[in-house]
């Protein structure tokens, strides 16, 4: 009996190792609370990749400290390619990573990006200002009164703080564990301004007329909201670039990286997926390594703000 069991184990073990990647479910680690823009997009991507790969892809939320806790948790996980990390390119060049030596961006490699996210500055619909100019005037007259919440200590938040510094405005700034809690805070009136991506709960609320969109904090205009200006167009020196991307451990096997990259490419050409994104006014596509590197460079100079403005 024992021998039989042993043989059975051996056979099962061998057949498992002989099977091609993936032979079991994958984890997709999202280092923010569920419900934010990256999280909702990842849930769609995960579902389609699961269909493509034939194995479930489970979204795992590890929120905290602007993505650094999830990043650290990911680095501790096995590097066999079954654990994939989702991050906005902006988070990796985020100033908060600069004094956290274990959180080294060189420890991960990109599978590719899937969506360039526009970051929008939202205000409450009942706020005494409706446009960005009115906001500047109001904040100037009421120092210390307005409150701003960000989904994390992201470069986007630094761009907003740069605007505040340049206009010599006194607005209180705090951080939440992702776009969803930040959206809840502005809807409850606990903060007056938040930054959030297109398709995030704040953006959905803005479409419903509960919030106003004041301006962009990223560098490219949006096709469906052309009236929103970028910080560069308004005469400020910084803007971020955000591409939602998937990463593996830097030492994960190359053949696994190729399988997953191909799967991501196929998924992003899937008409059903494009339709799901289109219903939210989003147009995803595959972003290769070059574009991701370019995004690092475009948003990278925001890192200087860390030294200019200091930590929050």
């Amino acid at each position: 009996m024992k021998k039989l069991l042993l043989a059975l184990c051996l056979v099962l073990g061998l057949s498992a190792s002989a099977q091609a990647f993936p032979d079991r479910p994958l984890n997709l680690i999202v280092p923010f609370n569920a419900g934010g823009s990256l999280d909702s997009m990842c849930r769609i991507i995960a579902e389609f990749m699961a269909q493509d790969l034939g194995k479930p892809v489970m979204v795992v939320n590890r929120p905290g400290a602007s993505g650094t806790i999830g990043f650290a948790a990911f680095l501790k996980m096995p590097n066999d390619g079954y654990n994939v990390l989702a991050l906005p390119t902006s988070t990796i060049i985020s100033p908060v990573f600069q004094d956290r030596p274990p959180l080294d961006p060189s420890k991960i490699k990109a599978l590719g990006g899937f969506l360039e996210s526009g970051r929008i500055l939202f205000s409450r619909a009942d706020a005494p200002f409706k446009t960005f100019e009115e906001f500047l005037a109001y904040a100037g007259k009421n120092p210390g009164k307005l409150k701003f919440g960000s989904g994390g200590d992201t470069p986007t938040a630094y761009v907003f703080r740069h605007i505040l510094a340049k206009e010599k405005l006194d607005v209180n700034v705090t951080l939440f564990n992702g776009g969803a809690p930040a959206a809840a805070a502005i809807m409850g009136g606990h903060v007056d301004l938040v930054e959030g991506g297109i398709g995030s709960p704040a953006d959905v609320a803005a479409t419903a007329g509960k919030l106003n969109r004041l301006c962009l904090l990223t560098g490219n205009n949006l096709a469906n909201l052309p009236e929103l200006k970028t910080p560069l167009q308004m005469g400020y020196d910084y803007a971020t670039s955000v591409i939602f991307s998937l990463f593996l451990h830097a030492d994960a096997p190359d053949e696994v990286q190729n399988i997953l990259t191909d799967s991501l490419k196929r998924v992003l050409a899937n008409k059903d997926l494009l339709k799901k994104f289109a219903s939210r006014n989003l147009s995803p596509r595959y972003y290769g390594n070059e574009e991701i590197t370019h995004s690092f460079a475009a948003g990278g100079h925001v890192g200087e703000l860390y030294n200019i403005l200091g930590k929050l």
Partner: peptide
Amino acid sequence: TLGIPGNLAAALILG
């Protein structure tokens, strides 16, 4: 009501 899941089960329903 807000699109903000309060726990893991809710997050999966959101998915």
